[in-house]
Amino acid sequence: MIEIVKFPDKLLKKQSVRIESIDSSVLSVIDKLTFVLDFYNHCVGIAAVQIGHLVRIVAVDVSKTKNKNHGRLIMINPVILEKSSEEIVTKEGCLSVPDYLGYVARPKKITMEYIDLNGKKQILEAKRFEAVVIQHEIDHLDGVLFLDKIVPSTQLIKRLQNDI
């Protein structure tokens, strides 16, 4: 089993470092990320820091949901290039904060750049739920948790057993 780093672990507040080349250690982290995505039914995204690696890699797959999406994405060194001014507020949860959910406002649409598994630069436009998940995971790479963005900031919801 791959252990998930949980809040209040200080690792979650650290800045992840850029990947300079795709080598066996990077591929190993990616294998672990995809394992976590598949293992947890409700998991739609995971960042390397959440499994103890301070590198800029995220895995996202919202295809388990009813939302339109791009399928499974493995993103190395992801950067958001543009954000829409229109926001949506969604209820977010996190494997690193397993007992709570909170409402977070995020841009409804983003354009981002990342490196794929083949080392090629990709540009992606994501909307709605997929955009939210990608932003949530990129926040992890910068040491930011959804807890830091809850609106209103005093509202935190205790997770129930059947919440996903």
Rank of each mutant, 00 (worst) to 15 (best):
M1P: 11
M1Y: 05
P8D: 09
K10R: 12
L12R: 07
K13Y: 12
K14T: 13
Q15D: 11
S16P: 03
S16I: 01
V17R: 14
E20A: 12
E20M: 14
S21Y: 07
I22W: 09
I22K: 06
S24M: 08
V26A: 13
L27I: 06
S28Q: 11
S28A: 15
K32T: 04
T34M: 12
F35K: 15
D38G: 15
H42D: 13
H42S: 15
Q50P: 01
I51R: 05
I57L: 12
V58C: 09
V60N: 01
V60Y: 00
V62T: 14
S63I: 01
K64D: 08
T65Q: 11
K68G: 06
H70M: 01
H70A: 04
H70I: 00
R72K: 15
R72N: 02
R72E: 06
I76C: 12
N77T: 06
P78N: 11
K83Y: 07
S84G: 05
S85M: 13
S85Q: 10
I88Q: 09
I88G: 04
K91N: 09
G93Y: 04
V97P: 01
P98G: 14
G102P: 03
K109E: 15
E113S: 14
E113F: 04
I115K: 07
L117Q: 08
N118Q: 13
K120N: 15
K127H: 04
K127W: 05
K127E: 11
F129R: 00
F129D: 00
F129G: 00
V132Y: 05
H136V: 04
E137D: 04
D139A: 10
H140D: 07
L145F: 04
L147Q: 03
D148G: 11
D148K: 09
K149H: 08
S153K: 11
Q155I: 06
Q155L: 15
I157Y: 10
R159C: 07
Q161E: 13
N162W: 14
I164N: 12
